[in-house]
């Protein structure tokens, strides 16, 4: 098992990113990207949540500690949240997460918050492609291989 993974590594790093997509805007945006046949890499594993404010910082950390190289949180643009204010709370939680990762030396560049509306299929594709490129440059998440966690 391990050897095949190591082999994949030596052949080049393949980033894996977890994406949290809010049901009402960003998930619909991702769907639109799909039906518009835009190129969205398979490296992202989308997880649908009802609202960006559902993303407890601990969910972000769970993904990072259990093998993700990056985590993307998306939601409706400020002012457009289906639940009115969820994304404002999400932004605060994200800022908190960002600061704590920074304090711990845990590479805050591995997490990203972006607003994507239901009509922004192209923006969704662009955000994902751009983020995966950034992660590729950062290289594998050291937490993936750290054996003392």
């Amino acid at each position: 098992m391990t050897s095949s993974d190591a082999k994949a590594d030596s052949q080049g790093f393949r980033p894996r990113v977890v994406g949290f997509l809010c049901n009402w805007c960003s998930y619909a945006g991702a769907d639109l990207a799909g039906t518009s046949r835009l190129d969205v890499p398979a490296a992202i594993s989308p997880i649908r949540v009802m609202c960006s404010s559902r993303v407890d910082p601990v969910l972000i950390m769970t993904a990072l500690m259990r093998g993700a190289d990056g985590v993307l949180v998306t939601g409706c643009h400020p002012g457009d949240c289906h639940y009115d204010k969820g994304n404002y709370f999400a932004r605060r939680r994200f800022a908190l997460t960002d600061q704590i990762l920074t304090s711990l030396g845990l590479e805050p560049e591995r997490v990203r918050l972006s607003w994507v509306s239901a009509s922004e299929g192209p923006r969704y594709a662009e955000v994902v492609n751009e983020f995966i490129e950034e992660i590729r440059e950062l290289g594998p998440n050291p937490m993936r291989t750290n054996r003392s966690l």
Partner: peptide, 15 residues
């Protein structure tokens, strides 16, 4: 185990 070949048991101490 798939990724690291060794892990703390149970995992999650630092988490």
């Amino acid at each position: 185990l798939k990724r690291k070949g060794a892990t703390r048991a149970p995992p999650g101490t630092v988490f």
